[in-house]
Each structure stands twice: as C-alpha cells, then as structure tokens.
Amino acid sequence: MGLIAAAIAVGLAAVGAGIGNGLIVGRTVEGVARQPELRGTLQTTMFIGVALVEALPIIAVVIAFMVIGQ
C-alpha cells in the first residue's frame, strides 16, 4: 500500500510539474526567439518560474520516500 501511495504522489506531482514547466519553457523560448535582446529578462522570469514549479515535486519525492521508509 505504501508503494502505491508513493507512486501516486510522485506521479501526480511530476505530471503537474511537467505541464507547468512545459508552459513556462515554451513561452520563454517563443519570446527569446522573437526578441533575442530580451534574453536576460526572460531567462530571469523563466528561472523563477521553473524553480517555484519544481518545489512541489521535490516535496512529493520527499513524502514518497518517507512513506516507503516507514
């Protein structure tokens, strides 16, 4: 049961992060390709977005490990 719980936790978090990261990276690449001089600003925004999106799956991985370890 613990394994299933861990798998569901990591899987759902990874799906959410994948969708979020895809949206962020897609729009940033579009913007940079259109205006290469704005690369620094767009990369900064992208970095903050990617970092904040990835915080949740990391928590999910940790929770999954804690569930498996019990």
Binding site: A14, N21, V29, A33, P36, L42, P57, V61
Partner: peptide, 21 residues
Amino acid sequence: RVGQAAVEGKKAKSLGSLTRL
C-alpha cells in the same frame, strides 16, 4: 542552456528536472 539554444535556433535536450528530483 535553453536560452542559448533558443537564441541560436538549436535544440535543448532537457531541463534537468529528473536530476534535481
């Protein structure tokens, strides 16, 4: 690397999410 690839019109393979997890 993704920004560099976007400027040069190349492909970036990954964002390294799995490494961080």
